[in-house]
Simulated scan of single mutants.
Amino acid sequence: MTAAEIHLKKKLDERKSSGAYRTLKPESALIDFCSNDYLGFARSAILKHLIDQEVQNHPHSLNGSTGSRLLSGNLQYAEDLEKIIAAHHQYPAGLLFNSGYDANLGLLSSLAQRGDTIILDELIHASAIDGARLSYANRYSFKHNDIESLEAKLKLAKGNCYVVVESIYSMDGDTPPLLDILNITEKYGAHLIVDEAHAVGLHPLGLVTELGLSNRVFASLVTFGKALGGHGAIMLGSDILRQYLTNFARSFIYTTSASFHQLASIKMAYRLLNSAEEEIISLKNNIKLFKEQIKQESTYPLLNSDSSIQCIVFRNNDKAREIANILQNKGFDVRAIVSPTVAVGTERIRICLHSFNTASDINKLATIINQFINA
Score class of each variant (00 low, 15 high):
7 H>G: 05
9 K>P: 04
11 K>H: 14
16 K>N: 03
21 Y>W: 13
29 A>V: 13
32 D>V: 04
39 L>Q: 14
42 A>W: 07
47 L>V: 02
51 I>S: 00
51 I>H: 01
58 H>A: 11
59 P>Q: 01
62 L>V: 04
64 G>N: 06
66 T>Y: 14
68 S>M: 10
78 A>C: 04
79 E>L: 10
81 L>E: 02
87 A>E: 14
90 Q>D: 12
91 Y>I: 09
95 L>Q: 03
96 L>I: 15
98 N>L: 11
99 S>Y: 08
100 G>P: 00
102 D>C: 13
107 L>Q: 06
108 L>P: 05
109 S>E: 03
124 I>P: 03
126 A>D: 15
127 S>F: 06
128 A>G: 10
128 A>W: 04
130 D>H: 12
132 A>M: 03
133 R>G: 02
134 L>Y: 10
136 Y>L: 09
142 F>T: 03
143 K>R: 14
147 I>Q: 11
148 E>G: 07
149 S>W: 02
149 S>E: 01
150 L>G: 08
150 L>V: 07
151 E>M: 09
154 L>Y: 01
160 N>E: 15
160 N>H: 13
162 Y>V: 11
163 V>H: 03
164 V>H: 02
165 V>S: 06
171 M>L: 09
173 G>F: 11
183 N>F: 09
184 I>W: 06
191 H>D: 09
202 L>R: 15
202 L>K: 12
204 P>V: 00
208 V>N: 05
209 T>V: 06
213 L>Q: 02
216 R>D: 15
220 S>R: 13
220 S>F: 05
224 F>H: 11
225 G>P: 03
225 G>R: 02
235 M>E: 15
238 S>I: 05
248 F>L: 08
249 A>T: 04
251 S>N: 05
257 S>C: 08
259 S>E: 08
261 H>M: 12
261 H>I: 13
268 M>L: 07
275 S>C: 09
281 I>L: 12
289 L>C: 09
292 E>S: 13
296 Q>H: 10
298 S>M: 12
299 T>F: 09
300 Y>L: 01
301 P>A: 06
307 S>L: 08
310 Q>Y: 08
311 C>G: 02
311 C>W: 02
316 N>A: 12
316 N>S: 11
319 K>W: 07
319 K>S: 12
322 E>N: 10
324 A>W: 00
328 Q>E: 14
329 N>C: 11
333 D>W: 10
337 I>T: 12
348 R>F: 06
348 R>A: 07
351 I>S: 01
352 C>P: 03
352 C>V: 03
353 L>P: 03
355 S>M: 04
356 F>H: 04
363 N>W: 06
364 K>I: 11
365 L>W: 08
365 L>V: 08
366 A>N: 15
368 I>M: 04
370 N>F: 00
370 N>T: 00
373 I>N: 13
